[in-house]
Design a protein around this nucleic acid. Structure first.
Lengths: 113, 113
DNA sequence: TCCATATTTCCATAATAATAAAACTATGGA
DNA sequence: TCCATAGTTTTATTATTATGGAAATATGGA
C-alpha cells in the first residue's frame, strides 16, 4: 500500500460520522446493517448519511449490497487489515515492532444470527 | 479513547504530507529527525512543513524538542498504540478478533546510534 | 396502477483546511 | 554587535469537504 492510498483511507476514517459508521459496521460483523438503521443510530439525515457511506465505499472500507428496497452495508475487514499492516510496518527501521495484524479473518466463522 | 478523539488522530494522518512526516519519524525511531531534514526529504516549504508539524504535535502524534537552533521531532508511539487499540477493539461484538497491540514499547531499548 | 418507503443525486451554502510568500523570533558563531 | 540559519507566525488566497433541503429513482405491496 502506498502512502497516498493509506492517507485516503485514514482521511475517510478521520471524520466523526464516518468513523462512527465504520465502527458500527465492524461491531455488527457479517450481518451488516441496513442504511436507514445506521442513520437512526447516529442521527444523520439521509443525504448526509448517503454522502458518507459513498465516501467509505469509494475507498473500500465498506461495501453495500442491495436487498429489495434496502441496502445492507458491511465492513471490509481486509482493507482495514491492510491499513493497520501499513501503519505498523517500517517501525523501528524495519524491525516491525508493532504487531503484524492477522485481524478479523475469524469473523467468517461467526454465526449469522 | 472516544470516537471524536480517534477521528482527530485519523484526520491528522489522513493527509499525504503528514502521513509522510509521521512515517519518517516512526522509521527514525528515538533519534527523531530535525525539522529542516524532514522538509528536505519531503520537499515541503518551511511554512507548510511547520503547519503540518504543528498539527501532528497538537493531536499528540509527534513531539518536538528544541536543540539549540534546531527542533528535533519524534514520533509518539504511545498515541499510535492507543489509536490502533481503539481501531481493533469492539470488533466482532467485543470478541476482539483484531490483535491488541503491544506495539513499539521495545523501541526504548534500541541504541541511539 | 398508485402509494409509501429507502436511498440517492442535485444543488447551494457554509465551514474547514492547505498553501506559501512575507515578516517575525530565536540562537549560535564571527 | 552583526550576520546567517532554523523555525514559526501572520496573512491572504485557494481548494476541498460537509451539510441538508428538494427533487429524483428504485422497489415492493395494496
Amino acid at each position: 500500500m502506498e502512502t497516498l492510498n493509506a492517507a485516503e483511507l485514514l482521511a475517510a476514517l478521520g471524520h466523526e460520522s464516518r468513523l462512527g459508521i465504520f465502527r458500527l459496521l465492524v461491531e455488527a460483523g457479517p450481518e451488516g446493517i441496513i442504511a436507514s438503521a445506521i442513520g437512526e443510530k447516529l442521527g444523520l439525515p439521509a443525504p448526509t448519511l448517503s454522502f458518507h457511506l459513498a465516501h467509505l465505499s469509494r475507498v473500500g472500507l465498506i461495501r453495500g449490497q442491495k436487498e429489495s428496497r434496502f441496502i445492507r452495508y458491511l465492513a471490509e475487514y481486509a482493507t482495514m487489515e491492510d491499513l493497520i499492516a501499513f501503519l505498523t510496518s517500517n517501525c523501528c527501521q524495519g524491525r516491525a515492532c508493532l504487531p503484524k495484524t492477522s485481524a478479523c479473518s475469524n469473523i467468517e466463522k461467526r454465526s449469522t444470527t
